[in-house]
């Protein structure tokens, strides 16, 4: 009986791990941002201030995440006075595209105003 429960738990864990793995945003972006303490909401709002529209933002961020540079960052000079620039992303193009799509859908303003 214990064995069965144990096996079941393992299965459930691998399944959830698998599903997390299938989503590059939750797998890649969220953990790092949580650990460095840079709110994704905050980065989204900053990015929105500069990029405005969905396609524009996705294209702009895809470039930034691959080739980060202070002068094209949306974080502002004040931020970099105390923080370092991030490393280039390890995701491939397709994964990055998927992650950015989720990023937009999760934080977008359109449809969330009253």
């Amino acid at each position: 009986m214990h064995k069965i429960v144990f096996l079941f738990l393992i299965l459930a864990a691998t399944l959830t791990a698998k599903s997390a793995e299938q989503n590059p945003f939750d797998r890649n972006c969220v953990p790092c941002h949580t650990s460095v303490g840079v709110s994704l909401r905050k980065t989204f709002m900053n990015a929105l201030l500069v990029y405005s529209g969905k396609e524009n933002m996705k294209a702009g961020l895809a470039y930034f995440l691959r080739y980060p540079r202070k002068d094209i960052s949306v974080m502002g000079e004040k931020y970099f006075a105390t923080h370092a620039l991030k490393e280039p992303t390890t995701l491939d193009r397709r994964e990055l595209e998927e992650a950015l799509e989720i990023f937009w859908e999760r934080y977008k303003v359109i449809g969330h105003l009253r």
């Binding site: 524009n56 359109i110 969330h112 105003l113």
Partner: peptide
Amino acid sequence: FPRERTYPRDPRFRSAIYDVEYRQI
């Protein structure tokens, strides 16, 4: 945002916002 979500209104006028891709926000 998103703690506050109420779009600002004014009795003197109505308004709308659009993004760079001409989508209504």
